[in-house]
């Protein structure tokens, strides 16, 4: 049944009023989608206020051979083993608790769910799915030990220092 209700807008008989409305709605829709896409960019910060993942662990002489030095703030252990220095993540692979080095047990223990690891990261027991990862470590130009917490090593690598 045709619409007989009088409309205000009769000034443009047979005009493509609908097309304009569609254009308007369409533009708004595109603007909306665009805003959503752009909202993603707005919501992703371009500059982060976080500590750098690269930690300056100081001179390697600070770590005598055979020592395990926990750095709770950075969530890692600096271990000076017989083959050299390496950095082991202290963050449990189970649910992200920070583990503790237990010298009396000679192992790394997680206080949350009881996972235990060797000092080379290998799991002894507990629910942790993976061993503790080794972190990329190197000596910089000034001879300081640098550790990149964001980069886990796939193979064992040591930072060798002259005794």
């Amino acid at each position: 049944m045709p619409d007989q209700t009088p409309h205000v807008e009769r000034a443009c008989p047979g005009c493509n009023r609908r097309r304009f409305t569609t254009a308007g709605v369409g533009s708004l829709a595109i603007a909306g989608i665009g805003s959503a896409v752009f909202g993603y960019e707005f919501l992703s910060p371009n500059a982060l206020y976080e500590p750098s993942p690269i930690v300056d662990a100081g001179k390697p002489e600070r770590y005598p051979p055979g020592s395990v030095t926990p750095d709770a703030q950075s969530g890692l252990y600096v271990v000076h083993g017989p083959e050299g220095i390496y950095a082991l993540s202290a963050v449990c692979t189970h649910l992200g608790c920070v583990t503790a080095w237990r010298p009396e047990l000679d192992m790394v223990a997680c206080p949350c769910h009881g996972s235990k690891f060797h000092i080379d990261g290998v799991k002894i027991e507990g629910p942790a799915p993976r061993p503790l990862p080794w972190l990329k470590a190197w000596l910089n130009d000034e001879g300081n030990l640098m550790i990149d917490r964001s980069e886990a090593l796939t193979r064992k690598q040591y930072v060798r220092v002259q005794a």
């Binding site: 097309r19 304009f20 308007g24 709605v25 533009s27 603007a31």
Partner: peptide
């Protein structure tokens, strides 16, 4: 309607 479309674009 026309104004709506034009302004929308």
């Amino acid at each position: 309607a026309r104004a709506f479309g034009t302004l929308g674009v």
